[in-house]
Design a protein around this nucleic acid. Structure first.
Lengths: 359, 359
DNA sequence: CTGTTAGCGCTTTCAT
DNA sequence: ATGAAAGCGCTAACAG
């Protein structure tokens, strides 16, 4: 590295971190005056303020201790976002990051911190939640039995849940996944014989699996469950039996996981002529895998996605349009007690070239 | 939403949130016994523990208040990650998310929360930093004069900075960007006549610009500056004058911004025969833009990237290999006082098909 | 095994 | 415009 990059004189651990009292004493004023200087400067005489600020600076006092202030005020000015998956996955998951961006929009605007709480499903999740110094929780799509949910409810703090499951005390923000799945699914299956589904995990271990006509009611994740119910309805309405539908699940909504699953689906004995994917990320890897096999879309294979990302347009993907960023913002608002406003989240189906027009 | 979506019991907003003292009184024990029950259960008689837990549950006490505990313990069990950009950008930035994942690895392992602090460059940044209840800061690549840096130093808390700039009290984690830029740059410019650079922002406004032979020393971001210095060295070593090199900057390291910039570079009067990009994300958009123009790579155009992402391999990109996730973890460790271990961050150049072999 | 004491650093409330 | 008192909810340190 260049010589303009010098760091690392030692850290002085011996110096006590100064407190308000230290500064007050050094400046010859009361602690209250120091507090006012930092919190309501207008209330303090110009000269006093100056003196306090100088003393603070001289002593290396950086301002009121946020923890003490939070305790006294009974408010942390921060909210937690509970992610039901390792953070590394969440950051690779376009849906999750768009949702997070929406939460962040509100937090930035209101000057709130965002605390990310990764869940591990390892028994410490409850602690992780209850130990966070926050004023409320936003929960990103999780499973029905997640201990995290119980902990959030136990905290007694306000919370908003995206996708599901609902709690009795929180706000649920979601589109009607089942209805949307039926609608988009029909675009692909109306002229198909062997549909398959590329699904989010349906059990908490998040293992990748390939199942035939799985029992949907047992799926642990409400979002996946509702979409599967919708897809099933679409298949049945097209005169197809759910028993014959193959469902492949990915461990995470990332391109890498999607590519593997797409490969599995297209290489197996089962030769699907329609694939209903629960995200554009997944669907696009199907498009690619199909292209690699010189399959013609939509003739040989119909594909639907979910989210209507910019890439969906690039790939001509028939998909469900929803605004996850807005839903993230809606969760934050709900939790902060703002007027609901967006209780009902809208969605629509965007029909493009990866499916054939319905009669 | 389906009626299968119920959880939790009613929330009584009228009830005061119980404290340890409340529980202690109700259970007929001292507050310390309640504290021990939650923090060192082994120290409490089984029967007493049982009683306390039951009482707590009955009263809806969710456990020790994290803020009070943090104040008393002098520790927050959370660290902040300071992002020099809006969160929405950071989440779209593969480098940033890989780095964050590394920080998250360590935090997850150690049970620490991650507080995301987006900077706005709006004068409140100092406050945002100093108001966070955390035990230290990890700073993601920022500019030399960022007020955030001053605030972090003023906090007196330990901090680790990725990329730069260094502070006197923090740890710097970075590869030798200048040396790496020279090395990878040479792969592309050794047989080129008109190189161009696709760069990260060089001024804090992050405006997209196209400059010819810019004054590198004035670039505000150390990472971009060092890489530009390295690229310049490569050009000069190849007998080319920096004055003739066009540098285009992107507002953010995202595919969208990259596509725009790649377009600008390839559509302008200046016809580059080599493009040195500061990330694989940027480089790949150049490859695509070149393909769309039927340019032949590496014959018509040599391209280098940075990071050696999986996509770099897919696209046959000559690039710099570095492990940002590990660097994120190194920052977290440094800040937590763990033995350094990774002071020196390694890098290497991976030569693939987007450049021509050097003689 | 359980309890007492004494604050952590700050700010609300109420004086002056 | 400044200050004194009180205590937010908890736990380290030290009894017993």
């Amino acid at each position: 590295m260049g010589s303009d990059d010098r760091a690392g004189t030692a850290h002085d651990d011996s110096a006590e971190r100064p407190t308000m009292a230290t500064v007050a004493e050094a400046a010859g004023v009361s602690p209250m005056t120091v507090s006012y200087t930092f919190n309501q400067p207008a209330r303090v005489a110009r000269a006093t303020r100056q003196l306090v600020l100088e003393t603070a600076h001289r002593l290396g006092y950086g301002g009121p201790n946020p923890t003490a202030r939070a305790l006294r005020r009974g408010r942390n000015d921060a909210i937690a976002v509970v992610l039901g998956e390792p953070l590394a996955y969440a950051f690779d998951d376009g849906q999750a990051t768009r949702f997070l961006a929406g939460v962040a929009d509100v937090c930035t605007e209101r000057g709130l911190g965002i605390v990310l709480l990764p869940m591990q499903n390892d028994g410490h999740d409850r602690r992780r939640i209850l130990d966070a110094a926050v004023d409320g929780y936003v929960i990103w799509t999780t499973s029905d039995e997640a201990p995290a949910l119980e902990a959030v409810v136990a905290s007694g703090l306000p919370h908003a849940i995206h996708g599901g499951p609902a709690t009795s005390t929180g706000t649920l923000v979601t589109i009607d996944n089942q209805a949307a799945a039926t609608a988009v699914g029909l675009e692909a299956v109306h002229d198909a014989k062997q549909p398959a589904v590329l699904s989010f995990p349906i059990e908490v271990e998040r293992r990748p699996q390939v199942l035939r006509g799985p029992a949907i009611e047992e799926a642990s994740f409400p979002v996946a469950r509702h979409r599967l119910l919708g897809y099933r309805a679409a298949c049945e309405r097209a005169g197809l039996s759910w028993q014959d539908v193959v469902v492949a699940t990915v461990p995470a909504n990332t391109p890498t996981a999607a590519a593997d699953a797409a490969d599995d689906l297209l290489s197996g004995d089962f030769r699907p002529d329609a694939i209903l994917a629960m995200s554009d990320t997944l669907a696009i890897e199907v498009v690619r895998a199909a292209a690699a096999r010189s399959m013609s879309i939509p003739t040989d294979l119909r594909i639907t996605g979910w989210d209507d990302t910019p890439e969906a347009d690039t790939y001509g993907l028939t998909t469900v349009r929803q605004d996850l960023r807005m839903q993230g913002a809606a969760c934050a608002h709900a939790l902060l007690g703002d007027p609901p406003g967006v209780e009902v989240v809208t969605w629509s189906v965007i029909v493009r070239r990866t499916t054939r027009p319905r009669p």
